[in-house]
Design a binder for these strands. Structure first.
Lengths: 136, 136
DNA sequence: ATAGCTGCAAATGCTTTGCAAGGCC
DNA sequence: GGCCTTGCAAAGCATTTGCAGCTAT
């Protein structure tokens, strides 16, 4: 994925998000090159490195707003922190438990068959597969 | 699974754990009836309800010691808290994101094929499948 | 006796919240 | 102008840690 600034502005507006400086700059980091996995802490550090002035609270707010707007997907791999993925399509992950590196697995490279019915009164929302890996 | 007090003592000793009052009582709650999913907070509350005097820090320590000893398995379903499962065999989970209820799926009722190779220099440790469900 | 446990309180790390000031439409 | 956003600091949780006192072996 490749997006220029205009595409990114349009993306935000199309999801009903106002164009504030912080949102445009964070969206630039996230969506310019596509396919990224970040935590709030990582994104805040990266923003600072790039001369973007934004508070940590705003990074959290923005990640959640983008998630609600369907631009990001939350991933639960690690009970210590929340990861966000710019790839919102159905797919799965490798998670390196030593260096906390997350890698996508294209959906069509994993097949999952869940035979049992979900618990009474519930319906399946989605299936997450995390393949935990460690250095060899 | 069904264990009486003697079985439980033997279980702890066989894993090299000293028989302290707190460990025996917590192990009683966890392993007497088998197949349970708990968080530290839940286990501490249950202990209190059962008149077991134990600090929250000891509950955390004990859960980790039991995990290291292979009596429990950590589960990452929810980035807000850590779950522990008394079922240490390979299997997967339904997770109800509304009421935070975890249910086992026997391994033989799920088939997963991961085709791509893990990232360079890593080997697969294990595969976790979480089927997220919501009330219908 | 001594290595290992426990309990408490304080500390930590991630995340959320309250609120005043500022910015977008 | 009015509503949404931002930043800061404080608060909130889950979890870990330091350490003095206790306990299993």
């Amino acid at each position: 994925m490749q997006n220029n600034d205009d595409d990114i502005d349009e993306l935000l507006v199309s999801r009903g998000l106002r164009l504030t400086r912080q949102r445009r700059q964070l969206a630039g980091l996230l969506f310019r090159d596509g396919d990224r996995h970040v935590t709030a802490e990582m994104l805040a550090r990266e923003a600072k490195r790039n001369g973007i002035r934004v508070s940590l609270a705003t990074v959290y707010n923005t990640l959640h707003q983008f998630t609600r707007a369907g631009l990001l997907r939350r991933i639960n791999v690690d009970s210590a922190r929340t990861w966000f993925d710019t790839n919102t399509t159905v797919h799965h992950h490798f998670f390196n438990t030593s260096n906390l590196e997350l890698t996508d697995i294209p959906q069509d490279r994993v097949s999952v068959d869940v035979l049992p019915a979900p618990p009474d009164g519930t319906a399946i929302d989605h299936v997450d597969v995390v393949v935990r890996v460690t250095p060899r």
